[in-house]
Nucleic acid binder design. Structure first.
Length: 815
DNA sequence: TTAGGGTTAG
């Protein structure tokens, strides 16, 4: 229905053609009766006109087509042209072509209609091909109607410029429709200046032409110039119409000018344009971009006619403002209204599912998209599905969809890299990034940098991260707030806090995100006081903290033993900023009390929680029990943990370690066999070091490294040396029931030691050696270790940022 | 009879 021109403004087709409808029904009945005798005939063309108007669905046209074929009328150019149009309105473009091919005396109307039929059904290349076929003929001439639709359809500029030549030859370039279409086409290919030259020289400009130029500048990211053209338009006394208004609403969104947008909304109401479906859709989009969700349902509910774009817009409005549940409600309403979702509906829907993290929705959404074959049709939806799987943590499905994409663009790669990085699989993210760099047709962009930098930060791969930094500087992206925040995070996590701070002060600090980053990385390195100072500065600059800010602060307090300050943060968050604590906030509090040895307080705190504590909360308590050696409390925490999440090997390891510390080996064996029965094994610990652009990974006891013998020899020497300096190994870290000698041996061959020695062997003296260890990832710190035993320097501990205390203890740096 | 310019995307 919506495709029919009479429905353009939402007027019912039935209303317009009630009389014709009656005629069509009578005619059909009489034809069906007479078909066997072959004595019926449509006599007057005016009857055909009425019959076409009576067609309300695809079947009507097919029926009428059959009748006209029987009567021999379908081949006449007059009737065929209408059939071509009617079939194309209902999306049956192949039937349009069939009708077209049957006509012997094709006139310009027939050709123009066929071209428009292709354009109407988005078959651009066929439209252009058909136009060139027409131009090559001598029996028909192109006219004012020929070029506008073809220019709209030009899928490559080469077609556009050759068509421009044809237009010049035919002398049609001053027709206002033709020239406007040229303006539109050149703008579409990014040649706004060329379009403007044509526009300027036009002897007469109608509103449509001004609209083409305004939208042209807007689409070329030049909203300011679009605004200037609008001013010129008003100066020349040309009135804004619904198209101008719809375009200008998008321009306001791009210019970040809500006030102007609202003034246009007033204009819309004053001039009765609010019932135009395009204008209302544009209003919804504008308010959504400004996050003004209050205005959105008002506009939507007042619409008389809603099309698929209206539904998509309101769904996207809530989806983009992190309100997936309301978005889904509108999706259900759309289904109740029997509006079929299209590709863009599903793009928004997959993002909603990603936000809701609802595994039940994932399969039905992916299944629906697959049935429609949309993944092969459009890259955006493929990227959406990858993102959906990645956000739910199902990275292997994301990878499968990614591999099967027929064409991958930069965003597909960025989405895959981000997907791995955000699921803690930084090494996989780096692998994808390296593959991407091998593809010479792809140019990594700002999104790529934002995707890979957190992965490097997570791995502690400072050198690789710095390479990205140099790329950022080359491309003048250092002022981009997303990129620079990632760089602050990278330098911060890798212990280069002074660099992080100087970068931080170069960034725009209007939102909480850069503040959260700088607070968090100081917290990670045990500089909780500094984190609190940054928080104070943030408040002084008038930036509103969010739940992440408080998470970073609580983490900082926890790592620095600032219990009172942590309690203060927890209180301020709720009372002053009305942020309800989540499980993560509770987890941080428990961790903070636990680390400070306040195990009873931590336990009581859990008991007082208004929600059911999850595995991370009990895990924090268990971790604290392990540090402070409280077996009884540890058992309590474990029983809750095993009940909540019996599949996480880490919980078993923690409890087993706790028993081991007290020499309660029967407890150790019990827990270990429990874990084995459930098919759980401890994640092997590994350490890595970056050397000569290569990351070397070491596992404890792994003898496969080519330098293993050399490393072992050097390690023996160092161990002997530090022992002679008075270092006693803390064998309580060895959680196996073996003799003390053997415990020392195990300790001496921990993966981080192997990596450090490899570093010593392969770098010149006084080089800073940076080790990354996977099992301490909850601290997310890189380990700066100064090897004092070899360098004969006593490190000033306060200057060694990002120091891994346990690592330093190994080599006697702290006694 | 046939035509241009507008709204939704990661």
């Amino acid at each position: 229905m919506q495709r029919l021109p009479v429905c353009k403004d939402g007027i019912s087709l039935d209303y317009l053609s009630r009389s014709s409808c009656y005629l069509f029904r009578c005619y059909s009945v009489s034809c069906t009766r007479n078909l066997g005798y072959g004595n019926h005939e449509i006599t007057r063309e005016i009857d055909v006109e009425g019959l076409f108007r009576a067609c309300t669905k695809s079947e009507d046209v097919k029926h009428l087509h059959a009748l006209l074929t029987v009567s021999g009328k379908a081949k006449s150019s007059f009737v065929a042209t209408r059939l071509i149009n009617m079939h194309s309105y209902f999306g049956n473009v192949s039937l349009s072509r069939y009708t077209f091919d049957q006509v012997l005396d094709k006139d310009s109307y027939t050709w123009n209609s066929m071209i428009s039929a292709y354009v109407r059904n988005r078959q651009s290349s066929k439209a252009v091909k058909c136009a060139f076929e027409m131009l090559s003929r001598t029996d028909v001439r192109p006219d004012f109607h020929t070029f506008p639709p073809v220019l709209k359809a030009c899928s490559a500029l080469i077609d556009g410029t050759s068509l421009h030549c044809c237009i010049l030859k035919s002398g049609l370039e001053w027709d206002v429709f033709v020239a406007s279409s040229l303006v539109h086409m050149y703008c579409r290919f990014g040649f706004a200046d060329r379009a403007y030259t044509i526009f300027k020289d036009m002897p007469f400009r109608d509103t449509g032409c001004w609209n083409s130029m305004i939208s042209g500048f807007f689409q070329n990211d030049n909203a300011k110039e679009a605004l200037r053209i609008l001013d010129d338009m008003i100066l020349e006394g040309v009135k804004m119409d619904s198209v101008t208004v719809a375009t200008m609403l998008s321009v306001c969104a791009q210019l970040n000018d809500l006030l102007r947008g609202m003034l246009i909304h007033l204009f819309v109401i004053k001039h009765g344009l609010e019932f135009n479906v395009f204008v209302s859709n544009a209003l919804i989009n504008m308010y959504a971009k400004f996050g003004e969700l209050k205005c959105v349902p008002n506009v939507f509910d007042h619409m008389h006619v809603r099309d698929i774009v209206s539904w998509n817009s309101i769904i996207a409005a809530y989806e983009q403002n992190n309100n997936p549940y309301v978005a889904i409600k509108f999706f259900h309403r759309m289904q109740v209204n029997k509006v079929q979702p299209d590709l863009l509906t599903l793009v928004s829907l997959s993002s909603c599912v990603a936000q809701m993290k609802d595994p039940l929705w994932v399969k039905s959404v992916h299944g629906f998209i697959t049935r429609k074959c949309w993944i092969t049709e459009d890259i955006v939806i493929g990227n959406g599905v990858i993102d959906m799987y990645a956000k739910l943590g199902i990275t292997d499905s994301a990878q499968k969809v990614f591999e099967r994409l027929p064409h991958k663009d930069v965003i597909s790669w960025n989405t895959m890299i981000t997907g791995y990085a955000q699921n803690g699989l930084a090494a996989a993210a780096v692998e994808v990034y390296n593959c991407m760099k091998e593809n010479k047709d792809l140019k990594p962009n700002q999104g790529t940098q934002v995707a890979i930098l957190p992965a490097y930060a997570h791995l502690g791969a400072l050198r690789d991260g710095m390479k990205v930094h140099s790329q950022v500087l080359k491309e003048n992206l250092e002022l981009d707030v997303f990129v620079s925040t990632c760089l602050v995070d990278l330098y911060g996590k890798c212990g280069r806090l002074s660099e992080a701070i100087s970068l931080f002060y170069q960034v725009s600090r209007e939102t909480s995100v850069p503040w959260n980053t700088i607070i968090s990385c100081h917290g990670l390195h045990g500089l909780g006081e500094t984190s609190l100072k940054f928080f104070e500065e943030m408040l002084n600059e008038g930036v509103k903290p969010d739940h992440v800010t408080f998470l970073s602060l609580l983490n900082a307090c926890s790592h620095s033993g600032l219990v009172d300050q942590g309690k203060w943060c927890f209180q301020v968050m709720q009372q002053e900023y009305e942020i309800m604590p989540t499980l993560k906030h509770y987890g941080c509090m428990v961790d903070m009390f636990g680390r400070a040895g306040l195990l009873e307080t931590a336990y009581n705190f859990i008991e007082s929680m208004p929600m059911k504590p999850d595995a991370s909360v009990w895990g924090a308590l268990l971790g604290a029990c392990r540090i402070h050696g409280n077996v009884e409390m540890g058992r309590k925490a474990s029983s809750h943990l095993f009940e909540l999440d019996s599949q996480d090997a880490g919980h078993y390891v923690l409890l087993s370690n706790l028993y081991a510390n007290f020499g309660r080996w029967e407890g150790v064996n019990e827990v270990r066999s429990l874990a084995r029965d459930r098919g759980l094994w401890k994640t092997p610990g590994w350490s890595s070091i970056e050397l000569n652009n290569k990351i070397e990974v070491f596992y404890s006891g792994n003898q496969s490294h080519p330098q293993y013998e050399k490393i072992l020899e050097e390690l023996g020497k160092i161990n002997a040396k530090i022992k002679s300096l008075g270092y006693t190994p803390d064998t309580s870290f060895v959680l196996q029931d073996v003799e003390v000698d053997e415990k020392e041996n195990i300790l001496a061959h921990h993966s981080e030691r192997l990596a450090i020695v490899f570093g010593i062997l392969n770098t010149p003296p006084k080089t800073c050696i940076r080790i990354y260890k996977n099992l301490r990832s909850e601290l997310k710190i890189s380990i700066d270790i100064i090897i004092c035993s070899r360098r004969k320097e006593v490190p000033d501990i306060s200057s060694v940022r990002g120091m891994h205390v346990q690592g330093l203890a190994y080599f006697g740096a702290v006694s």
